[in-house]
Design a protein around this nucleic acid. Sequence first.
DNA 1: ATTAATGTTCAGAA
DNA 2: TTTCTGAACATTAA
Length: 286
Amino acid sequence: MPELPEVETMVRGIRSHVEGRRIRRVRLCPCSRRPILLEPGFEQMAARAEGRKITQVWRRAKRVVLALDSDDAFVIEPRMTGLMLLDDPPSVEHLRIEWQLAGRGAYRSVWFWDRRGLGTIRLLDPQQQDEVLGPGNLGPDALDMTIADWQVICRGSSTPIKVLMLNQKKVAGIGNLYASEILHLSRIHPETRARNISRQKLRQLAENTVAVLELAIRYEGSTLSDGTYRNALNKAGGYQNAHRVYDREGEPCPTCGRSAIVRIVQSQRSTFFCRSCQRKPRGLTR
DNA sequence: ATTAATGTTCAGAA
DNA sequence: TTTCTGAACATTAA
């Protein structure tokens, strides 16, 4: 579930309670039926983190990073259903990892909860952090993308723009939900080949990417109908009420008010858009 | 019973 | 060599 706004909300939610505190213990929760995707020997490696101080909590794309004073860092990928929580989990059943915190504070632990269990947690040394979080593996953070950055990734690419927006090596942080929202606001047809998008449209794409993601962060992310996503205090986000097209097939377009939102499939993922407001450029087939 | 779900990775194809 | 597609991962709810 979590895309950039949801992961940013997790980071902001736990940061003030976690930064500066020492890790007393890292515990694999017995209640998880199967282990989450952990590196072999994770438990021994986790012991390496015990007694260390968490110096910084930050976000890279859709990952949470807990940086330690040993220069190691936990890198957490929530993927579809992972959550970082301070307490009050949605269920005890899918708690996976507990970081017990030493010293005084409002919360004794940080938890990783993951219903589907696709999320990953790794403890990485500085070199591994560079490999996993660096430009070889992830493009520029979506909030940092300039028009020039968009031009670079779109130039010469025959990939449909919506598919390209989901390629984390090109631009990092946008997921399936926000790609549809950004393209609708930008009035760009999701099947437009990236190389065919005009300079003017690229400017709108750059501006609306930041606008949509920042607004979604302000609303603390999107909690969809299955209710899975919660912030660090197990409260639902609010941006789903502002969705223009995502999961709104058949509803009238909020821009033109006449055409109905349609759903198509690209790269095995649903895309939602308005056929009236989002047109492909005419006369360009290559 | 079947299908789809906010993500990523891998093998194999183009 | 690069880019792209489909399947897989595990769980749940409609």
